[in-house]
Structure formats: C-alpha cells, structure tokens
Amino acid sequence: MTLNNTIIETLDLKKWYTISRGIIRRQKSYVKAVDGVSIRIEKGEAVSLVGESGSGKTTLGKLLLLLEEPTDGKILFEGNNIIHNNRKKEFRRKVQMIFQNPYTSFDPRLNMFENITEPLVVHNLVNSYKERFSIAINLLSKVGLNPPEVILSKYPHQLSGGQLQRASIARALSLNPELLVADEPTSMLDASLRIGVLNTLKSLQKEMKLSVLLITHDLAAASYLTSRVYVMYLGKIVECGDTQDIIDHPLHPYTIALMDAVLTTKIRNLGELKIKGELTPNYKDNVCRFSSRCPYANEKCLTQEPKLVELEKGHFVACHYPSY
C-alpha cells in the first residue's frame, strides 16, 4: 500500500445506530449500517460504491464527509486520520459532495449565483464581487450550463433537475477539490438527462484529475464512469475489483443479480432473478448476510460469515461459493 498515492482510505470503519426498545426494561439493539468497511481511493481515480438502498452506502458516504461520526474505525485522508482532527477546514476544502436530490440541494431563498459561490465566501477565497462573478461564470461553462449569466440570476425552483445537478457539480468544483463524492447523482433525473450529467462528471474527472466516489444502485452507471467498483450489502463490502473484471466475471451472487436487473432497450423475457425477496436488516451474527436471498446458500453460509478474500489479482469477494 503506497500511502502517498492514496487520497482517502477507511480502515475497518463502523457506524452502528442504537435502537432502544421497551420503556421499563430497555433493550438495546443495533442497526449496523456500516460494519467494518475498508475502502481506498487513489488520487485521480474514479471508484463506485454499488448497492441497494439499505445497504449502507449512503451512510458510508456521509462518514467519509464527516457528516456522521463513526462508531469505530479510521478514516485516513492523505495519510492522516481525520476523525477528531483540527485540520477540518482544510479537509472541507478538498472533499466535496453532490447530493441525490438536486431540488433540495440549494438554499431556496438564494439565487444560483449566491448558492454556487457560497463556498468561496465561506473560505474567504474571493476579494471582490467581480472576481466572484467571473469565477461563477467560469464554473457554469465548465459544467455545461448555458447561458451562465441567465442561470446565475435564477432561483433554484426555476431550474430543472438536470440543470440543478450540474449547478451542484459547479458548486462542488468551486473549491478545486481533490475528492468528489457523488451520492446517486442521477437517480432523481429523467433517464434522458442522466447521461449528460454522467458525461460532465466523467470529463471533469479526467480534466481536473479528480478522485471521484460514485455512490449508486445502478451498475450500468458505475461501469460507465468508474474504473473500480465496491459492491456493498448490509454494511459489508461483498465484492470489489476492477470494473472490467467484475463485469466480465462477477463472483458474488449479489453482484450477478445487480447486473441481471439492469433493464436496457434490448427486450428480454422478464424471467426470475437469481435472488429472492428484498434486503432485510434482520440477520443473526456469524451468518452470511446475503444467505436469506441467496439461491446457493447452504449449511456453511448459515454458520460462518465469509471474509473478503482476494480470489484473483485485485478482485476480492466475500462468499463461500463464489462464481457459480
């Protein structure tokens, strides 16, 4: 592991939410949203985190941005643990985020100029209104919002979802970040606008040598934008590796199901997926968390939790019977 090339890394990161039940006898139970996750993003690399809602991928994103405090584990940013670190302001400048819902991502009372240049004001990076304005114009043309002068004078409710999501990218870029976390950036957009936003992200990532973490449930989007994939299920990473490897040769039954479920314009018979039911957070300790939905689950899966092991070079999987 070469530290100097890694931008962010988590070590056995955990986030458990406590639920107490009962009034007289308090029983504590935990929802293990993120349960021992170690991921790594290199400088200039685009990585995706794939999973269904409830898999803990959004929580992991929030942990990476210090929006939630982890229960246990470490987050190393450029080699330094940033939890309880006093260099947060610097971290805030280098790591930015794009949110799932573009319609609520902006302060509805401010116009787009104020919204987009807010980070510059917060970090005291501009001296004059003129400078602020020219930076804003520059940012908007970077993300393909035209004409920038008109967009800047609008209020969030006057723009479409696609326009807002681009504006969201522009705001994130205003600080020249090194890492961009995008949480389902296209899931609320019309299918016809998705590719545009993804393309914008893709070209910016190359141009600015940005590291990108794309959080998504859509393996098609993940494979389009990123070169490495982490597949997450109920708080654990179940498979990770190069995108091409995973697509050509998925090892975990969950990954296979996720790929199978992507609909395209190639009509096919909507047959049975090789995956049962829905993601449910009720599982016992020491079982494979996917066993309740797995078509291949057997005795071993119900008594022993599989560990993430490297089966091929750079291709890890947490399954007792991979690649069926």
């Binding site: 929006l67 930015q96 949110f99 799932q100 705001r171």
Partner: peptide
Amino acid sequence: EREFIYAQKVIGSSASRVLFIHLIPN
C-alpha cells in the same frame, strides 16, 4: 435533514453561518 444544509456543512460553513444565514430564514 435537507440536502442544502448538509451541503453547507460539506463546504465548511460554520455552525452560526448555517444557522443564521441558511436555516432560520427558511
């Protein structure tokens, strides 16, 4: 819990700025 408040935290706004400039007016 709205995203624009999270966004303010992400860009590094201080708590008082989030509170008085973004939260209370809304």
